[in-house]
Amino acid sequence: SALTFTFVALFVQGWARGLSLSCNCIGVERAVTSYPFEVAWRLVLFFLMLILLWDSCRKGKTYFNVTRLDFSEM
């Protein structure tokens, strides 16, 4: 979460300074054409990470049986 937030902050700073940003993900270069969409998409991912973090830390009742798979019997 912290790394994603830092990336979004740096991405917005680059956008504000007028830098030409591109993504070279998995060997395919893709120019960023819509900065608001890219920032919004990364903020959505950031908030989903926060929701997952919150959900994993709460002590609420789960409505399904949790099976721990630690392979200790092997």
Rank of each mutant, 00 (worst) to 15 (best):
K61V: 14
F46G: 01
L3R: 13
S1F: 02
L43D: 02
F47G: 02
W15S: 10
T62G: 11
S34F: 03
L43V: 15
T62H: 11
L45S: 02
C57Y: 07
R68K: 14
V32Q: 00
T62Q: 12
W41K: 15
A40M: 05
T6C: 12
I26F: 04
T4D: 13
C25F: 08
V32W: 00
M49K: 09
K59Y: 03
F64A: 12
F7L: 10
E29N: 11
S22T: 06
K59E: 11
E29A: 11
G18Q: 10
W41C: 12
R42N: 15
F46N: 01
A31C: 01
G18W: 08
R30M: 07
Q13K: 15
C57R: 13
E38T: 06
T6D: 15
I26Y: 03
Q13F: 05
E73G: 05
K59A: 09
T6S: 14
E73S: 11
T62W: 01
A9T: 15
C23L: 09
N24G: 09
S1K: 07
W54N: 08
D55S: 05
A2E: 12
C23G: 02
I51D: 01
C25I: 11
P36W: 03
N24S: 11
V28S: 13
I51T: 04
M74S: 15
V66H: 04
G14D: 06
G14H: 05
A16C: 09
I26D: 10
F47S: 14
F64E: 11
F47R: 05
F64R: 15
R68S: 09
L50R: 08
A40K: 06
A16K: 15
C57S: 12
V8G: 01
L48K: 14
G60N: 09
C57N: 12
L53G: 06
R68Y: 07
R42F: 07
V39Q: 03
Y35E: 01
S1W: 00
Y63H: 15
T4K: 15
V44M: 04
L19I: 04
G27W: 02
C23Y: 02
D70F: 05
F5P: 00
A40T: 07
V32L: 07
A16I: 06
W41I: 03
